[in-house]
Amino acid sequence: MGTFRQHSVLPGFNLALGFTLLYLSLIVLIPISAAFVRTAELTLPEFWDVVTTPRVLASYRLTFGASFAAALLNAIFGLLVAWVLVRYHFPGKKLIDSLVDLPFALPTAVAGIALTALYAGNGWLGQYLEPLGLKVAFTPAGVFVALTFIGLPFVVRTVQPVLEDLEPELEEAAATLGATRLQTFLRVIFPAIFPALITGFALAFARAIGEYGSVIFIAGNMPMISEITPLLIITKLEQYDYAGATALAVVMLVISFVLLLIINLLQWWSRSRSSSSV
């Protein structure tokens, strides 16, 4: 234990680390542990009953299903957008590149009301979709649209730098060896960007699962049909059902931790891939 840290001539280690740990503990770690401690007031069967009622299970299905579908759509189109931004030249490219980050910067409540206005029966898009039998606002499809919006930048921003760093020699070599452009893409380019693509997918998925602001406006929030798990936590809280709200929060926290772990492993994989190819 004597080798807790390697020697350095620089000052300030104790102050910097001490402040970091104190701040993290007060703001993040102690409050999060409060959720786990409060849940321990329930017995295990009680906890299980709370987190597996039909209404809660329906909210999991919607939250995870819509998050997965939105992350999948973002993986496909995020790859396309990243490709187009890195490889091609077209007017307005710089502006579009900057605007890709809009979902990170736009408050979720603003996104929520904008999407609802667009997809409502009298909205710009809704008026054309509803005659086709496609109701988006106030249905689970609305949840999918909102989660697609907020997850949009993740795949673009993880794939883009990898695509920029890809060496043109690899593609030239493939072409010289007689590969078609599609073969080169599938066998040379795609394997190189795959770890980044999966990382972006996982980040978009993780973000979508916890999302609240943009979804509640467009979802309609009908129990069993279009009610997401974070909203159910708020509903329980407003009914002073602290134990129920906390139990659901613990489920969400555990899922977040698992996803965080997976994302860290993916990023490590992604980095080791790109550094071994150089």
Partner: peptide, 17 residues
């Protein structure tokens, strides 16, 4: 960690304290 916690849970934990 705070990035991966749902905003709703982030608020709730302060209510619990």
């Amino acid at each position: 960690l705070p990035f991966s916690v749902s905003p709703v849970v982030s608020g709730l934990i302060y209510v619990l304290i």
